[in-house]
Design a protein around this nucleic acid. Structure first.
Lengths: 158, 158
DNA sequence: GTGTCTGCAAAGTCTTTGCACCATA
DNA sequence: TATGGTGCAAAGACTTTGCAGACAC
């Protein structure tokens, strides 16, 4: 759980509305899953979410978690990542509650660090690259992922 | 298969040497798998490689393909990617035969386009980001991945 | 009330592991 | 000949699918 629920609460309240706009029903399992995503700063796997939801709602199944995650991903409300450890991970999409950021991934312990620095420098490069690539390859670019791989300090000194 | 086998041939000859230096044995299946990787410009899955090798060497099993790919990845001779389609893909590591590049990935048809443009602009940004991130997060950065996601021209107009 | 959602179990994919036999150095 | 490598079959891990019952609207 995390402090400062104000902004997240606002965000979560927004989710239900968008859900209904899309013709989906707001159910107890879906609400629970969205709460877990909204309350976490981590990169959760389906099982992480399942286990957390399970504490409050033991009846909710892993299948429903997968199905809800797919729905939210398709709606663009969350983003699915693969950091190379064999399971998909999910986090809130960029928005009022989530700054544009990228990831440092430790190859040894698989720890993931989010960073939001250097976004200005990045923008400069990305804007030029996206424009040029769109034209040259007739590609309609919708998004990008930047991952840095390496060894974190905890792993380096042990 | 591809034209201009000269450079690739040189590269492949190099593989065996490095293999032996590391104490590994050069075997028929390993040679066949490395040939397929060296002859292809695509992002091959384990099964792609298995099927190609299988045409010439029907006895080579998928297990050996996986084991060889893991070996080559650990040695840094090939790179393992995940483009989000549920299977790992492999390509030659950057080197005399492979320019530094990144990927455009079509979200609809999963086509992957390699590009080598904008590397100078990228370097500028990367150098600054890597330096800053290394210091701030005490992270020893070894590499990076940049993926652009979008819709390719073939998918857009159909 | 009706069409969507759900949990369970089973199936599906990709990948890894165990083990006896084989081949390289 | 002594390891290390291989194929096969089986197991493992994550994810998806089928279906009857449950629930939101």
């Amino acid at each position: 759980m995390q402090r400062g629920g104000g902004r997240r609460g606002m965000l979560r309240r927004g989710w239900g509305g968008k859900f209904k706009e899309c013709g989906y029903r707001m159910t107890v399992p879906r609400k629970a899953i969205m709460d877990v995503l909204g309350d976490s700063d981590k990169h959760l796997s389906a099982e992480d979410i399942y286990l957390t939801v399970h504490r409050s709602y033991p009846n909710v199944g892993l299948t429903t978690v997968y199905r809800t995650l797919e729905l939210l991903t398709d709606m663009g409300m969350i983003v699915k990542f693969d950091f190379g450890d064999g399971r998909a991970r999910y986090e809130l999409a960029e928005g009022p509650d989530k700054k544009h950021h990228h990831h440092l991934i430790c190859r040894r312990c698989k720890r993931i660090i989010e960073y939001t620095e250097f976004i200005d420098e990045e923008m400069d490069f990305l804007n030029r690259a996206e424009k040029g690539l769109s034209e040259k390859y007739k590609f309609d670019i919708k998004g990008h992922v930047i991952h840095f791989y390496g060894i974190c300090d905890k792993c380096r000194y042990k």
